[in-house]
Design a protein around this nucleic acid. Structure first.
Lengths: 168, 168
DNA sequence: CGCTCCTTTCAGAAATTTGTGAAGTTAAGG
DNA sequence: CCTTAACTTCACAAATTTCTGAAAGGAGCG
């Protein structure tokens, strides 16, 4: 193994990981470009890349990067940084922040709950269908509360495992 | 309100619920037809419908019903029943079983964990990127265990709220 | 101010996904 | 066995989504 092969990141190994992890995310329902961009950021040593770097690694246009990053930022999975004294932007995964975002399906759950509540009243709370929906609703309300508690426990465990870096 | 309007299920109210709940599921990443079929089953008094009933309510072809049901069955969100002495099939939501299936992302999590594990070794456990992935991996392993415990607590709570029907 | 570098927006081409009709398959019931 | 009722598969048309190149926008720097 040559000096450069030891010190440089093996671009091909990185790319293999990026594409295979992205494929898993896609299979779980994520759009392709956001998934690839996210995987690339996750596997970068900095945890951050510029638009140009992303475009080069993934072989996609600046427009595609822009769209993917907008989506990821809306989901709070990455944040945007401005390099001081430059119009270049960097996109960053905050290593703990991102799965907090993934886990925080609060908005989704609330909408489901809303639809179910309407279903219960419009079909009648005393009908079999109404009762089934009421039970489903109770389940989601339960999950709501449990998720928050679970993330609290994770933070404690994380500190125990890796030591706290607070905001990293 | 006429007699028939009081006793018959209000087809339009049912349809409104079905389409709005399905829309939420679609927004969360589910395919359209499976989402609509699932919502229709959920809002039926029996908790079960035949292929023909589904086709009529949703205005879709038998082929579309077939595809949607196959998907839902694979996900263990519905089960198929054979009406004795008939070649007609009924598709049923087991009201507690289905969200156990939704919550059971074990297969998905395991695949994510596999990809991450490979990433850690191929990028090097001693690199910043490797450490980030190792932490993410630890998070998913943690979630794995938590979900099982959460569902256990739900079963207890469910019984407390609704009384046990065992297998319904 | 104006130049230049970077990002975003937009219209359209290309690829993918979706749902249908029609043919094919299976099994109940005479 | 043969008929017939039901579900499934398949090829294709339509609709939708995705990604790009090109043009527009905006922020730093001289």
């Amino acid at each position: 193994m040559t000096e450069s092969a030891r010190s440089a990141r093996d671009a091909e190994a990185v790319s293999r990981f990026v594409e295979s992890f992205a494929a898993q995310l896609v299979e779980a329902g994520m759009q392709r470009m956001p998934a690839r961009v996210f995987a690339a950021l996750l596997s970068s040593d900095e945890g951050a890349m510029t638009s140009a770097e992303l475009g080069e690694q993934l072989r996609i246009s600046p427009a595609a990067v822009s769209g993917a990053v907008r989506y990821l930022a809306q989901q709070h999975m990455v944040s945007r940084e401005r390099e001081p004294g430059s119009r270049r932007e960097r996109y960053r995964v905050h290593s703990n922040q991102w799965y907090e975002a993934v886990t925080n399906r609060e908005a989704v759950l609330k909408r489901w709950e809303g639809a179910l509540r309407e279903g219960v009243t419009s079909l009648g709370a005393d009908t079999p269908a109404g009762r089934r929906m009421a039970e489903t609703l109770a389940f989601f309300e339960f999950v709501d509360g449990e998720l928050a508690a679970m993330m609290e426990r994770w933070r404690a465990r994380r500190e125990q495992l890796f030591g706290s870096t607070g905001s990293e």
